[in-house]
């Protein structure tokens, strides 16, 4: 079980949320090259270390936010940051 610290609902079981994934910045769809766009769609750092990720609180406040989690130990650090459903910068 993983307790995810939702900024609005407090710690909740991960099954109450959706893991949107590693936060990536979305290039401007009007000017991005196909290569940049596919990089945004598919390529991830996938580190075994601290990573910034987007979560969606499906069964709670229904908001998106970003958290720093260590993917090797499953610890969280630092307060949540605002996020959006595209996973990119708020």
């Amino acid at each position: 079980m993983l307790l995810v610290p939702c900024p609005n609902c407090g710690p909740r079981n991960a099954s109450d949320l959706r893991h949107v994934g590693e936060s990536v910045s979305r290039p401007d769809p009007n000017s991005a090259s196909p290569a940049q766009w596919r990089q945004y769609l598919y390529i991830r750092d996938n580190v075994a270390d601290w990573n910034t990720e987007t979560w969606y609180c499906v069964r709670g406040c229904r908001r998106f936010f970003k958290l720093e989690r260590n993917t090797a130990t499953n610890e969280f650090r630092n307060p949540p940051m605002p996020g959006n459903k595209l996973g990119g910068k708020a």
């Binding site: 993983l2 991960a14 099954s15 959706r18 893991h19 994934g21 996938n46 993917t71 090797a72 499953n74």
Partner: peptide, 9 residues
């Protein structure tokens, strides 16, 4: 199915 979040644990 796989666990619902990425992780090396």
């Amino acid at each position: 199915a796989v666990d619902p979040f990425t992780n090396y644990n």
